[in-house]
């Protein structure tokens, strides 16, 4: 609980910082500070936290489903498949409402993730590095199909906006879909035990009375919808789903009923921190949060990989 309180306090501090900084000075700037907060800063802060929590949770689900800690949604073709869906809607029904685009993206994301999962069953388990490499290639193939299609139809700029996650464009009225992530998080919490059971492998999960296929489908559905919402709203952010669940797992283990809130909070904190840092480093210009996180997250992950695990007892 002390850890939970610490993380909560850290999140509040980060959120306050995120609300306070930006191109406009809240206290002496020319604009009405209430309006700046309501239209830009609060949505942006919430968006970063929701996206971070969603990516981290999606990472846990993917890792438990394939029983490999080195996989994350960015290595299962999920965002690329979502982008393919988005491209298709943009081309075929440009006037479709955002929710419909979202739905199509979620559906193609699910298909893409399921494709990776089907592939993963043929990858030998002995070397844990093999599966992420297969994922990298799979995501690369889907990504280049998307790029090819976008290039042929002059939509490359759209693709770019979905590829690099950042929050500078977040305004009131343009991020609310991200609240779906909160709904997914609650649903996931109800499934926490089942997702932990998935991590024991198919044989154990089934002999402990779990409807394996159904649970897997629900889990992958949550991953697909969460990732699609994030890609549509703020763009893809690699590494978050890899680094955050690994940090939490090393620290507190894999009992998801206990740890999912921690994973969500840590994901929210890290992405918000990346966004804040991205706003400060070249003030008043910005560096995309995904890029900041990729640099720091990758470093953190490499350091983690080479560090013996401190075991949590209790």
């Amino acid at each position: 609980m002390r850890a939970g309180a610490g993380i909560a306090a850290g999140l509040v501090l980060l959120a306050a910082l995120s609300l306070a900084i930006g191109a406009t000075n809240l206290w002496s700037g020319p604009l009405d500070s209430g309006m700046v907060l309501a239209v830009s800063r609060i949505p942006r802060t919430l968006a970063a936290m929701l996206a971070g929590a969603g990516l981290a949770l999606a990472g846990v689900v993917v890792q438990q489903s394939v029983q490999n800690r080195l996989v994350e949604p960015g290595l299962t073709g999920t965002p690329e498949a979502a982008m393919l869906g988005l491209l298709a809607v943009t081309l075929l029904a440009p006037g479709a409402p955002l929710l419909a685009k979202m739905g199509v993206a979620a559906l193609t994301a699910l298909l893409g993730t399921a494709g990776f999962f089907a592939l993963s069953r043929h990858v030998p388990r002995r070397d844990p590095m093999l599966l992420p490499l297969v994922g990298l290639i799979y995501a690369g193939i889907l990504g280049s199909i998307a790029l090819g299609a976008a290039w042929a139809t002059d939509l490359v700029q759209y693709l770019w906006s979905w590829q690099s996650g950042e929050f500078s464009g977040v305004l009131r009225g343009r991020y609310e879909l991200l609240w779906l992530v909160a709904g997914m998080a609650l649903l996931l919490y109800l499934l926490a035990d089942r997702i932990t059971l998935l991590g024991l492998g198919e044989d154990y999960a089934r002999s402990l009375g779990l409807n394996y296929r159904q649970t897997l489908l629900m889990g992958l559905g949550i991953v697909a919808l969460t990732t699609a919402v994030i890609v549509v709203s703020v763009g893809a952010m690699p590494f978050v789903g890899l680094v955050v669940p690994n940090l939490v797992s090393r620290w507190r283990g894999d009992n998801l009923r206990r740890n999912l809130p921690l994973v969500a909070a840590a994901g929210a904190g890290f992405v918000l921190a990346a966004d804040v840092l991205g706003r400060l480093l070249r003030w008043p210009y910005e560096i995309p949060a995904a890029m900041v996180f990729a640099v720091f997250g990758a470093g953190l992950f490499l350091w983690l990989l080479n560090r013996p695990r401190v075991r949590h007892e209790g």
């Binding site: 029983q67 800690r69 024991l200 492998g201 044989d203 154990y204 002999s207 009375g209 409807n211 090393r250």
Partner: peptide
């Protein structure tokens, strides 16, 4: 599965990933 799990328990050969539980 839910009903079967009340009749049979299983230990399989070398469980794949060891969970952090």
């Amino acid at each position: 599965e839910a009903e079967r799990a009340l009749l049979l328990s299983l230990l399989t050969q070398n469980p794949g990933a060891v969970p952090r539980l």
